[in-house]
């Protein structure tokens, strides 16, 4: 199960004048929907009697992801550590994750979320699958394993597509796969006792070109909404409706 350590989108501080972003103080956690994926992975691993390994790739700041994924039910966790401030894109990420998955050995199923809450690029799972040479099944909302066969229901807009393939495979899931329960105190304490490991990305034996990003981020500008923000909070419901009605009349939208 691959989880990404991200800054929360709702905590980014955007300077209204320059639109520059300060993510320094943003709350960090594993990507929102990765939590649903971990839970789905935990259920599948339990069903087939397998071990669930939580895997993350990122700079030293991503270390807390280990604890979170363990608290959410992984049996062990691995952080492939990129050098501080290293440039990372989807190409590099997929090479690092695929190489580490190859080192674990005997992996039957890799789960990623369909998209991460920062990049939402929908690329990591399919890229990892391609590098491993395994079948790829994306956008899955129902998942089951029987013997060595994977059964999945994919969401393609208005179409639900039921597919199957043999393991090993790479699957990306959508959050509708199931809820992400909040870990209890016991799970949080237990997480500290489960095995976790940090592997410098340089130890994976990847060729230089695999760790060379293909695209470079040359600018990042925050979004500033231009809205009136008129607050209608006083009085009873009738008064609020009257205040809103006069506003809407002024806007000419009635």
């Amino acid at each position: 199960m691959c989880v990404k350590w991200v800054a929360s989108a709702s905590d980014l501080l955007v300077d209204p004048a320059t639109r520059t972003i300060d993510a320094g103080r943003a709350h960090r956690a594993i990507s929102e929907y990765d939590r649903n994926t971990v839970e789905a992975a935990r259920v599948v691993a339990g069903h087939v009697g397998g071990d669930l390994v939580g895997l993350t790739f990122g700079g030293p700041e991503a270390t807390p992801a280990l604890k979170e994924v363990l608290a959410r039910g992984a049996d062990r966790a691995i952080h492939v550590v990129a050098p501080q401030g290293a440039r990372i894109d989807g190409h590099v990420t997929a090479h690092a994750l695929a190489a580490q998955i190859g080192r674990i050995g005997d992996v039957g199923l890799v789960l990623c979320t369909e998209g991460a809450s920062d990049t939402y690029a929908h690329e990591t799972g399919p890229r990892v699958g391609e590098l491993l040479g395994w079948p790829v099944v994306t956008n899955v909302r129902e998942l089951g394993v029987e013997g060595t066969t994977l059964h999945a229901v994919r969401v393609l807009g208005d179409v639900l597509e039921t597919v199957e393939c043999e393991l090993p495979a790479v699957v990306t899931v959508v959050p509708e796969i199931g809820p992400a329960p909040i870990p209890g105190l016991k799970a949080l304490l237990g997480a500290g006792r489960k095995p976790s490991e940090q592997v410098p990305v340089g130890d994976l034996g990847l060729p230089d070109h695999a760790l060379m990003p293909r695209t470079t981020v040359t600018s990042l500008l925050g979004f500033v909404a231009q809205r009136k923000r008129i607050r209608i909070a006083d009085g009873d419901a009738r008064e609020k409706v009257a205040a809103l009605m006069s506003g809407l009349a002024q806007e000419g939208v009635l």
């Binding site: 989108a9 955007v14 920062d118 939402y120 981020v217 040359t218 925050g222 979004f223």
Partner: peptide, 10 residues
């Protein structure tokens, strides 16, 4: 990126 919170140039 950030679900609309920012625009990134690559």
């Amino acid at each position: 990126v950030y679900a609309g919170g920012a625009v990134q140039t690559e």
